[in-house]
Amino acid sequence: MRYETKNSLRPILASLMVAGAALAFTGCTTTPHTANQETAAEQREVIRNGYDRALSRLYAAAPESRELVQKAKGVLIFPSVIGASFIVGGEYGKGELRVNGQHAGYYSTGGGSIGFQGGAQSRATILLFMTQQALDDFRNSQGWTLGVDAKVAVADIGANGRIDTNTAKEPVIGFVLNNVGLAAGISLQGDRIQKIDL
């Protein structure tokens, strides 16, 4: 009889554990989301200002990146990609594409991840389209997934701040900035990018 009671409690305990995990996940991902409360003009202004700040931070962290940006056919920057996870998580951000220094569209990015990463994190993602073909392929797509529709070489920065020469030859180069500076060992594979009206 005692054995049966123990077995009957297992489903209840399992349900309580799942509910606890869900509550923890909610707590980790609850951050003020003001995008829905801002007007489209305000959102565009935030993105434009964030774009310029992200470029300045990139140049400070890796001076050689300035030359790559100047050579790029297009530069897409997501100034603030917010990610939060507890076991299973996701991320989302809005950004701007500029071609020859001129506005060429707004985009959203989203991705998912699995792992014990707990807590909310923010990063800036910068993508440089180094060839016209890479830029055209991106702009003509209905939705672009990194690692599927195109390989993105996340820049490898040495201790001296120099960019790996092999990386600099790739058609699409990515940089990831966190609160400290350039982030190492970050994968952008699986992130999906879509054009949005803003």
Results as ranks from 00 to 15, higher is better:
Gly90Cys: 07
Ser65Asp: 09
Asn36Lys: 15
Ile87Trp: 11
Arg123Ile: 07
Arg44Gly: 14
Phe175Gly: 05
Thr145Met: 05
Asn178Ala: 10
Thr145Ser: 10
Gly27His: 00
Leu55Gln: 10
His33Asp: 14
Cys28Glu: 07
Ser8Ala: 12
Leu58Trp: 06
Glu170His: 11
Lys151Gln: 08
Gly93Val: 02
Pro79Leu: 03
Cys28Pro: 00
Gly161Gln: 03
Ala124Asp: 08
Tyr51Gly: 05
Leu97Met: 03
Ala124Leu: 01
Phe138Gln: 02
Phe116Asp: 08
Asp156Glu: 12
Gly27Trp: 00
Tyr107Thr: 00
Phe175Arg: 09
Leu177His: 05
Glu42Ile: 12
Arg2Ser: 14
Ile47Phe: 03
Ile82Val: 15
Leu135Tyr: 00
Val88Asp: 08
Gly119Val: 03
Gln117Tyr: 10
Pro32Gly: 13
Glu91Tyr: 08
Thr29Tyr: 10
Thr125Val: 13
Asn49Ser: 14
Lys73Met: 08
Ala14His: 05
Met1Cys: 13
Ala41Asp: 08
His33Ala: 12
Ser113Asn: 13
Ile114Gly: 07
Val46Arg: 15
Gly115Asp: 08
Gly143Met: 03
Gln142His: 12
Thr30Arg: 10
Phe116Trp: 08
Gly27Val: 02
Val88Ile: 12
Met130Tyr: 04
Thr167Leu: 09
Arg44Asn: 10
Arg53Tyr: 12
Ile77Asp: 00
Gly90Leu: 04
Gly74Ile: 05
Glu96Cys: 07
Gln37His: 14
Ile77Lys: 01
Thr109Glu: 06
Asn140Met: 05
Val69His: 06
Gly118Tyr: 10
Tyr51Asn: 11
Ile114Gln: 09
Gly105Phe: 05
Leu135Gly: 00
Asn166Thr: 14
Ala19Arg: 00
Asn7Ala: 14
Lys71Tyr: 05
Leu182Ala: 05
Asp149Tyr: 01
Gln189Glu: 13
Gly119Ala: 09
Thr131Asp: 05
Ile186Asn: 11
Ile47Ala: 12
